[in-house]
């Protein structure tokens, strides 16, 4: 029981962090059709910026300033980079973000060095809020959860209740049509790209000290974010939310089971010989498949239902 409750809480926290990262990406992908490889790099930049700012002005200032800076940076990247390559097609755009991710990592190495940063949870949030069964539940997790839920609510309201939000939603499905109506589509693109980057930056600010801040943090989290937006369906916030929670739960709970195929066979009273074919296959446990499951899910989803859970159209 204890294991289930704690795992459920953990997957909620991690899932919401994933959601914050993927919400921006899914909007960018949905609107512009660009698979933004640099998205996780903005997440990394967020953590590094936050570390630097918190050295001078404390965590709370960093929490506000860093995402704004990242958002401006993202908008600039869209304006001066992506827009230039747009005319060469999607492949060029995608490769541009690929190159950008590469350059951001190099620059981070250059400025902050190769060693992981000592970016820690602020002491005002470094205590245990309650004890659950035998385990402590740190307040910082609750704080992360609160921020990400807040972001989801704000985003949802923004997209459904404001004029800009409605235009964004319209250009998700009918980008040409929105342009025809006289809206400045490139500017909306810039806005969404900047906003999405800012969200990734915010995820970096609160995720960097919870996990770790090092030059490899983008590569560590990058691929999984793609999985989230594919499964959720691109352009869909609700989809991204469901997929984030789904993947976090899947990965968290897979850890708890150490059954292997040998155990399955044992149910049917079959025993393997001493030297079976594919010796590795039989001893793989459920807990080992954690990293595999999201990708398996993604490939299956792409083949059977390329729209994703909540998506409206294919790429």
């Amino acid at each position: 029981m204890e294991f289930y409750v704690i795992s459920l809480l953990n997957s909620l926290v991690f899932g919401m962090l994933l959601f914050m990262l993927s919400s921006g990406l899914t909007l960018i992908f949905g609107m512009m059709g660009v698979l933004n490889f640099a998205h996780a790099s903005f997440y990394m930049l967020g953590a590094y910026f936050a570390f630097q700012i918190s050295q001078f002005a404390g965590f709370w200032t960093a929490l506000v300033i860093a995402p704004i800076l990242i958002g401006l940076l993202g908008a600039a990247v869209e304006r001066f980079g992506l827009r230039t390559v747009h005319k060469h097609g999607h492949v060029a755009e995608l490769l541009f973000t690929f190159g950008l991710a590469f350059m951001i990592e190099e620059l981070i190495l250059l400025i902050w060095g190769r060693v992981a940063l000592n970016y820690q949870v602020p002491s005002s949030l470094d205590f245990t809020i309650f004890r659950l069964f035998e385990s402590d539940f740190p307040v910082y997790r609750l704080f992360m959860l609160a921020i990400s839920v807040f972001i989801f609510v704000v985003l949802y309201l923004l997209l459904t209740k404001t004029r800009t939000g409605i235009i964004i939603q319209a250009s998700l499905t009918h980008p040409e049509g929105v342009g025809m109506l006289g809206h400045n589509v490139p500017r909306i693109f810039m806005l969404v790209f900047g906003g999405g980057s800012a969200l990734a930056g915010l995820a970096g600010v609160i995720g960097g000290n919870y996990l770790m801040t090092s030059p490899s943090m983008a590569i560590l989290l990058g691929p999984i974010v793609f999985v989230v937006i594919v499964i959720g369906g691109m352009g869909s916030l609700t989809g991204a939310l469901i997929a984030s929670l789904l993947i976090a739960t899947l990965q968290t709970f897979a850890v708890g089971y150490d059954y292997s195929l040998i155990d399955l066979l044992a149910v049917f009273n079959i025993e393997l010989g001493p030297e079976p074919w594919f010796p590795d296959l039989w001893r793989i446990k459920v807990e080992n498949t954690g990293p595999l499951l999201p990708y398996l899910l993604m490939v299956i989803m792409l083949i059977l239902r390329p729209k994703g859970i909540m998506g409206e159209r294919e790429s």
Binding site: N10, V13, F14, L220, T252, K285
Partner: peptide
């Protein structure tokens, strides 16, 4: 006797929960 994927785990709390259990 747990093996986790190398360099892929972002959050070890599920593993810690298991150790605790």
């Amino acid at each position: 006797d747990t093996f986790h994927p190398i360099g892929k785990v972002k959050d070890f709390s599920p593993y810690v929960a298991k150790i605790k259990k």
